[in-house]
Design a protein around this nucleic acid. Sequence first.
RNA 1: GGCAGGGUAGCUCAGCUGGUUAGAGCACGUCACUCAUAAUGACGGGGUCGCGGGUUCGAGUCCCGCCCCUGCUACCA
Length: 518
Amino acid sequence: MPHQKPFYITTAIDYANGEPHFGHALEKIGADAIARFHRQLGERVHFLIGMDEHGQKVAQTAAARGIAPQAFVDGIAAQFRETWDRLGISYDQFIRTTDAAHKSGVRALIKRIAESSPDDFYQKSYEGWYCVGCELFKRENEIVDAKCAIHPTRELQWTVERNWFFRLSKYQGFIERLLRERPEFVQPESRRNEILALLEQGLEDISITRSKLAWAIPFPLPTDEGAEPQGTWVWFDALPNYLTATGYPAKGWKDRWPAQLHVVGKDITRLHCVVWPAMLQAAELPLPERVWAHGFISFGGERFSKSAGVKVSLPETIEQFGPDAFRYFLLREVPFDGDGSFSAERFEAVYTAELANGLGNLASRTIAMVEKYCAGVVPDAAPVSLDGDDAVDLAAARAAMDGSHGYLCHEALAAVARVTDRANLFIQQSQPWVLAKDPGKRAELDGVLAALVRSLARQAAYLAPFMPGKAEALWTQLGAPGTANGMRFSGVESLNPAGWHVSKGEGLFPRPEPRPAA
RNA sequence: GGCAGGGUAGCUCAGCUGGUUAGAGCACGUCACUCAUAAUGACGGGGUCGCGGGUUCGAGUCCCGCCCCUGCUACCA
């Protein structure tokens, strides 16, 4: 089996201008769950994340702190990686746009476009009202009373700048055909509709360089006599990271490209569904297979947690119940195709109901009974109706995550939660403690306990993409061979726990301390 | 303004092509049970299905109008 092409999944690279926040975390955690799920589906996965480190704001922030831009972004990148490590993000590659390989890859891409589609780059003088506050030219509808609507205290400056442009308008028909012939290219459907609406307005060419941009990749094409040197603007710097991460143009990049899935925020779908495909087409390179636009997390309706002066700290929230519980909460509560909100109260409620009382207690009572009634060794017994019912839900979990209907982490977790609930109900209905008092019911008792261990093992395997640490802990307590994270889903149904030595360790999800009355 | 989606129990939401007394989870109350992290299970209270018209034997489910919310309406990422 030579060079099976991997399932190449990417997230947006994060802008290195501040600390990681909930929004960054949601995207990485969701993409990580997808990546892990596909590994357990048996696919070879390559999971890319990284940082977008160029730009005016980065340079300004670094200057304000009195350090060089590179030193500044080095610090930010380290901070992000610490957070991702803490959250168990299983990335295979961490790209930074200040990497030498990325910069040379960007230059190669631009030159390739200039060769294959020489008409697509052109220089044009651009003039208009420039807002120093925004670092942007403002459009008519953004100007109020001759001032920038966002910075009404600043004077607008009539500015003339000569920049490179990309002939995006040429690709209008190409993008329309793309979305029509490959409707799954942009998901969920609502985002695709928005792109279609955008296309109906017609595409305009975009400027792709800035003359005042020093902290950037120098634009590699020869600029007109006398013109200022040009820095590559964000589109042609950030978007190509998915391609340059493969090593492009060095030998071997075709082994990974094109990507199967770009996981991005709903705010940048346009860039990934219109600009990026046009760039690739201009370069005569293959397009990615799909762009998935996830929603946002809010705090009680507020985009950021300014309300009531309450600060929601990402590191503190992660530590409250640990990284696995945090991952679980975000993926369970925030539909991955829409928006959701976070609150400490809700987090605690879900943790207590589903993880402590639900899964954690199920594991606790099951293992305790195997220890008490079977000396800790799981008996051998045939499947019961519980197994068949669970199989239906686990198939639903796969369907939610395999891409056939998008990537719906919340639906997958809801399906696993049904398995947990069913097992708790099964105990109540079977009443193993009653069976244990009657030696004549030994076989029945064995059947019940074996079924429960099988169910828990299946849950551990299917929860591994979402809670890799806790799934592994449960796997260990069950005495199962190998690892939960390494468990292929194809092997889950035939798991037979007969002979496993269970061991009741630390409570999987200890109940939270009662809150002191305020 | 335009386009798209939505307004269903305290909270988060299911309700496909219209059909018996509108569902689930969480929260709340009562009861049962004891293997378990005072967990689990059963039962129950609770909804003018945004508002007003209309079509129909019959509408949360279709049509019209209105109110409210969210997203998009391209070069901050």
